[in-house]
């Protein structure tokens, strides 16, 4: 039992270090020591004398941003693990399957077109959009004869449709200012993130992870397909319903905060499998932690890659993710 605990502590330490780095690096570099002292002053009642501006930048901007990046990376990676297992497709993930696109459409409908008349929050709209995308892609995949390849094709169709709807809404209903903001957000942007966003992202990511862990055995049983899982006593319909809703909720919450960030859900599960193997009881926590660290590091890169400019983090993940997609596709080729 000592080994899993040690591994978990090590992973948490790595995440903590990545977050501290993210709080330190930026237009104004702030020494790690100041980061530690700021956290001490804010959370543990220490009274280190600190520069007010530095403390403010670290606490109000960078730490909240890094924490949301971590939650977002973790949640997307866990979603990717779930979708790859349920659909038995190594390329499945929220972005590729159009779930992120659906969530964006839902969010934009609330934000710009004012659907729901204020009763529906942005995340709520994103969730409904994500559910609509899953339903559409699922129906399309089943209607075209099922099979794991059809799901990807249906995902392509779904993404295109929802992206077109988003563009339509933005171009017809938004003013120039809004349009610029929305387009930047759509690419995946951690710029406007503050503490209240952590209050949404953290419970969704951790809660989603716990629910996924409770289904780890069921996900293992899907290795040979839904009928095989059913014959092992897995309540296939309920598991699918719960886990698809869970991925929709996790994706929607993250899209609502930071826009659609692609490829994290695709690449991280494969990296995690490489490290801990196929069993979901180990794969899910590994994906959560690696995804969290990955997106925090990607966010740091997005801020230092181009001087004086911050890239949308979605651009950075795509720069890594698209080649990884190609590699996974190549390795998944069928033996003759």
């Amino acid at each position: 039992m000592a080994k899993p605990v040690a591994v978990a502590l090590l992973a948490l330490a790595a995440l903590g270090f990545a977050i501290a780095l993210a709080a330190s690096i930026g237009e104004m570099t702030i020494p790690l020591e100041i980061i530690v002292k700021t956290v001490g002053n804010r959370l543990f009642g220490t009274t280190f004398p600190l520069n007010r501006i530095q403390e403010g930048v670290v606490w109000d901007y960078r730490l909240s941003r890094a924490l949301v990046a971590a939650c977002c990376g973790g949640a997307l990676a866990v979603s990717g693990v779930i979708l790859q297992a349920l659909l038995r497709n190594p390329l499945a993930e929220p972005y590729v399957l159009g779930i992120s696109a659906g969530a964006s459409t839902g969010a934009v409908l609330v934000m710009i077109a004012g659907i729901g008349g204020g009763a529906l929050s942005l995340s709520g709209g994103a969730f409904l959009g994500a559910v609509a995308a899953i339903a559409l892609v699922g129906l399309l995949a089943m209607g075209s004869g099922g099979g794991s390849d059809r799901v990807l094709l249906a995902g392509v169709a779904g993404s295109q449709l929802f992206n077109a709807m988003t563009s339509y809404i933005v171009t017809t209903s938004a003013n120039a200012e809004q349009a610029r903001g929305v387009l930047f957000w759509l690419l995946g942007n951690l710029g406007g993130v503050r503490w209240p966003d952590v209050g949404l992202a953290a419970p969704v990511a951790l809660g989603g992870f716990v629910v996924a862990m409770l289904h780890a055995r069921a996900l293992d049983a899907f290795a040979f397909g839904a009928d095989a899982a059913a014959s092992l006593g897995v309540p296939v319909r309920r598991v699918r319903l719960v886990l698809f809703a869970l991925t929709a909720a996790m994706t929607a919450a993250m899209v609502g905060i930071v826009g659609s960030i692609g490829f994290v859900g695709l690449v991280i599960p494969h990296a995690a499998r490489f490290l801990v193997g196929q069993g979901h009881a180990r794969l899910l926590p590994a994906a959560l932690m690696i995804g969290a660290v990955f997106l925090v590091l990607a966010d740091i890169l997005s801020r230092i890659l181009v001087a004086q400019q911050v890239l949308p983090v979605g651009v950075v993940t795509a720069l890594f993710g698209a080649p990884a997609f190609a590699v996974i596709l190549y390795r998944a080729r069928r033996p003759l």
């Binding site: 055995r217 290795a223 040979f224 009928d227 092992l232 006593g233 193997g277 196929q278």
Partner: peptide, 26 residues
């Protein structure tokens, strides 16, 4: 089942272990 297969990198032992699923709680 007839010809059930997987793309996951499972060992023989992993596959046989799946048979214990109905005997184990979550």
């Amino acid at each position: 089942e007839q010809q059930a297969t997987t793309e996951a990198a499972l060992t023989v032992q992993d596959v046989v272990r799946l048979g214990r699923t109905p005997h184990r709680g979550p």
